[in-house]
Each structure stands twice: as C-alpha cells, then as structure tokens.
Design a protein around this nucleic acid. Sequence first.
DNA 1: TTACAACTTCAAGTCGACTTGAGGTCAAGG
DNA 2: CCTTGACCTCAAGTCGACTTGAAGTTGTAA
Lengths: 149, 149
Amino acid sequence: MDIGELARQSGAAPSALRFYEEKGLIRSSGRHGLRRQYEPEVLDQVALITLGRSAGLTLDEIGQMLTVGGRAKVDRQLLADRADAIDDQIRKLTTIREGLRHAAACQAPDHLACPKFRRLMGLAVRKAIVTARPSPRRQLRPSGRGSGA
Amino acid sequence: MDIGELARQSGAAPSALRFYEEKGLIRSSGRHGLRRQYEPEVLDQVALITLGRSAGLTLDEIGQMLTVGGRAKVDRQLLADRADAIDDQIRKLTTIREGLRHAAACQAPDHLACPKFRRLMGLAVRKAIVTARPSPRRQLRPSGRGSGA
DNA sequence: TTACAACTTCAAGTCGACTTGAGGTCAAGG
DNA sequence: CCTTGACCTCAAGTCGACTTGAAGTTGTAA
C-alpha cells in the first residue's frame, strides 16, 4: 500500500510516517515509481508507535522496543528496564490521579492545605526529591488532550 | 527565601522557577532589592509541578490543577476529567508494560509475530478493517489529528 | 494524451519547556 | 570603598516530534 493508504488506516499523518521511516522505526518495502510502498504489517508497527506516543514515550524509546529491522536486537534486559521505567511512571501517574480524585471531591478550598491530599501526594516527605532533574522525559505534543476533554 | 534557596530545596533550576512564575504556576511574595522572595509553601507547589512533569503532564495541565492564586478556580469537573485522562494514560502504559514484560521473556525473535504479544497489545483487531476500496477522499489538511489509539 | 491528485525531497517553521548568554543591579563582606 | 557573586531582564538557542511550504515528479482516470 502507499503512504496515503497507510496514513488512512493508521491514523498517522503521511509526514509523520515519513518521519518514522527516516528515524528507522518503520520501513517501506520499496517504491512504486517514487512512491513508497508498505507491507501490511507496518500497520501494527505504527499502531504500536501511536500507542507508545500517546502513553508519553519518546520515539527513541519506542524504537528500542521495536524489532523493526527484523534483525536481532531483542535486548531482553533493555526491554525489562523499559518495563520498570514505565512501571515507575505508572506509579507517579497513579499518585496524581488519586490526588486529583480527592481534590475533586474535597471541600478544602486549597488542596495543598488538605492533609489528605498532602498524604496522597506524599508532600510531607519532600526531602526525597533532592535528585534534581526528573529524567528528561519529554512529552508528546499535547494537542489532543489539552482542551475540552 | 530567595530563588537560589528554593532551587536548592526543590531541585528545580532557578531559570525553571522564573519560568514557572512567569507562567503563573507559582508566585513570589515580593522582592528584596530586585531579588524574588518566596514563601515556604511554594516548595509544595514546585514539588507538585515536578511530580506532574515527571509523569508527563504539561505545565498548562498542571496549572489547571493548581489553586495557586488562592482564588477559587477549583473546577471539580476539570479535576475529575483530568483524573480520567490520566487513568486512560495509565491503562495505555500498563498495556505497554505487559507487552514489554512478555517480550522480554518470550522466545519469538519478532514479538510482533508472537500471538501472546499481539493479544496483550490488542493488535489483532487491526486485521478486520482492511482494504474495501475506500471512496476517493482527500485529506491533506491538518488532518484533524487522530491523536491515536 | 492530458490533467491532476497524490506523491516526492528539502528547508524552514512551530510548540512546549526550558537553558544559555549578554549585559546590568545590588547587598554584604573584607 | 570595592569586590564579588547571586541575582536581574531579555533575546536567542535547543530538543523532540512533527508540520508546512515550495518546487518538482508521476500513476491513473477521463
């Protein structure tokens, strides 16, 4: 299939697909004239990329998980490490979610003053944060999730 | 305390703190000469910002949760919506984590070929929707953004 | 055969979240 | 009094992930 079809079926923009290819996350099987042709299984790869991106992973991170070249590279340790890192992120998000759920229900006008909120967020133990720089985890362009929601 | 002290205690760079202030996420209580002075409770706010950032939230998103101005704005619906959005992100991350954990243990050289991996990632559903010769629809505009998954 | 929509490349622009650098101010200590 | 260094402002730079635009090519339907 050509890039337009892949775009339609995957939901990713053609420019994004070219970008992924340039980065080595997907591969075209050849050209028809000058047009890229893709095998159907690329759809799965793009789905994976999209999922990863929407979960906040960088393309580099996703690339490390993808065995796209077909060749080897299945670094199990890396995979396990990534899983752990994601687990960590899940814990942080869970913390925030709980804090938010409470804040949405709480009567205190300023939730930073609410002891329950503070406990949920672990703000009493702020000494722990010393390790400046929370991993350079850059986020996907917020686009969708910003408004309305 | 001045910005250097806040930076030291919070782990955030002074430039980041100025940036947060400019964005309205924190406030200085005044100046000593030309130097910003901060109240201790700003530490909590910065801790919250740091936590949110490391979980992948944008500053705007975090700002909406923060009642920093002291004044009202506790939009419970917004808070609940944010909690839901975060829940969604947690689910995606959980999916990925499970996929990764399996891939790290699996023998298949290409996990996209592994049925268990595919099931974990929910990639099987893709198959169904394919090529039914879609009507010639053009879509070269900003594509409305799939925002994926 | 021709029109044209869909593709191509490449360069530059955008956005969020900061960082870096230049040039300037000022409070405190020697 | 003078130095120092932590602060100040403002502009510009950086990075990731794309998007946009210009200019050119081509498969295919009419």
